[in-house]
Design a protein around this nucleic acid. Structure first.
Length: 203
DNA sequence: GTCTAGATGGCCT
DNA sequence: GGCCATCTAGACA
């Protein structure tokens, strides 16, 4: 897997909203005993810490779960949602609990592995949602606390930043968070066919 | 210790 | 469009 070039630590130290866009087109790579699976990030959502009602770290809530959000930029924050695992990239300075949720990727390497992990689904449905992509790539709760610059879970150079167009809009699945639901902190690669689908199309 | 809600997905109608 | 699986962190007693 030497052809993968992990993004340097400095990459993660840019402002969160900027990083959320910079992550688009990057390659998310997961190594397991079964092999390597990877996909290009095509959709992200920023969670802005203390001031963001939708963030787990709203009001500077510091618990066992959110602890990693206070840590170093580029750390892995995994979270269990019902029966699914979601994966986030911790951003901002130590002590500033911000993170970016990876909502969708486009399959690249290890497609047969993904197919096995997502039996009976069409290629598009392997990774077009935050819970789906973790399953397809084999991301688990024990990835919590690792860092994206080191295996087994890394973010590497992917597409050229000027080879696609970025769109932004409100986040998804946070209807009960007051004014926070309207913040346009979701970013995606315009026109990509592996984007997650809207949960509640209500304006 | 007990109760509840949730950054979802899949299956049913 | 609606319902439910399944489970953990967080709040409260």
């Amino acid at each position: 897997m030497n052809h993968y070039v992990p993004m340097p630590q400095s990459f993660y130290e840019q402002p969160t909203l900027q990083l959320a866009q910079a992550l688009l087109g990057c390659l998310l790579v997961k190594e397991t005993e079964e092999g390597v699976a990877s996909g290009y990030i095509v959709e992200t959502e920023a969670y802005m810490g203390p001031a963001d009602r939708a963030a787990h770290s709203f009001g500077n809530r510091r618990t066992k779960r959110t602890e990693i959000m206070f840590g170093k930029a580029g750390s892995v924050y995994t979270y269990t949602m019902h029966t699914h695992i979601l994966v986030n990239v911790v951003s901002s300075d130590v002590g500033s609990p911000e993170a970016i949720l990876i909502r969708a990727v486009e399959p690249f390497e290890g497609t047969s592995l993904m197919e096995n992990r997502r039996p009976g689904r069409s290629r598009k449905e392997w990774t077009n949602g935050p819970g789906k992509l973790t399953k397809a790539l084999g991301i688990q709760m024990n990835d919590y606390g690792h860092h994206f610059t080191a295996s087994p879970l890394t973010i590497c150079e992917g597409w050229e930043q000027d080879s696609f167009h970025i769109s932004s809009g409100p986040r998804i699945g946070i209807e009960n968070t007051g004014e926070a639901r309207d913040y346009p902190w979701r970013y995606w690669v315009e026109g990509n066919s592996y984007l997650s689908k809207m949960r509640s199309p209500t304006t």
